[in-house]
Amino acid sequence: MPEAPTDRHHDDGHPNGRPNGRPGGRPAPRGGEIKYVAKNMRLDLRLIAEMIPSGATVLDIGCGDGALLAHLTAEKGADARGIEIDMAQATQAVAAGLAVIQGDADHDLAFYPDGAFDYVVLSRTLQAVERPREVLRQMLRIGRHAVVSFPNFGHWLLRWQLLSKGRMPVTETWHREWYETPNIHPCTIRDFFDLCRLDGYEVVRWLAVDDRGMRAPWTRAPRLANLFGEQALFLLRRG
């Protein structure tokens, strides 16, 4: 089985949640350093941040060391909270004064009340949870909107590798062998559209992006996006 984005997985992942935290173990921001972090925040997190209005209540599932939470708190006055499966990252985020709990998407979402948040974020983690459909259902139960990003398994390079070699693709994005990857539920952009239709979620916005999080130009053509987009980013609303 292939592997998700390289920048996420600098060591062994966990089987039922975000395999690891944000790149490089960069300390989460404190006080006056906020701007430094915002400027250097991973690009896909900046795209997510752009989707979230000022003053929103936000839950970031798989928040890593809390870079997005710190940004949303400092720059948008958000009430931002996080869940992180990796204890070292959760401790780092808490030590930075962020409201982060150690926990995971599969087991902890059920305890939040309906409509507790304006936005619930799950970035580059959907493919690694035990029950993606249930996690999405929970996200749109506890949040009015869900922001979901995932690596696109429909990308042409993966298709080509499978077709030409007859083996599980191994790319920069999907770089672990099938027998040790934590990414147990990969999907394509078209698969994700189908699930949204099946469960009645409205796709408010969507983007296909390259591996560094730069916007790709296929927003009007899902089939092309599914072929050329390495990452997908969706903003959903309960239908």
Binding site: M87, V94, I101, Q102
Partner: peptide, 21 residues
Amino acid sequence: SRAIVRALNAAAANVSFVEIT
């Protein structure tokens, strides 16, 4: 502790939680 955290989540409280090894 996790039971407390979950009750606090159910109450939509602002909560941080870590288990120290």
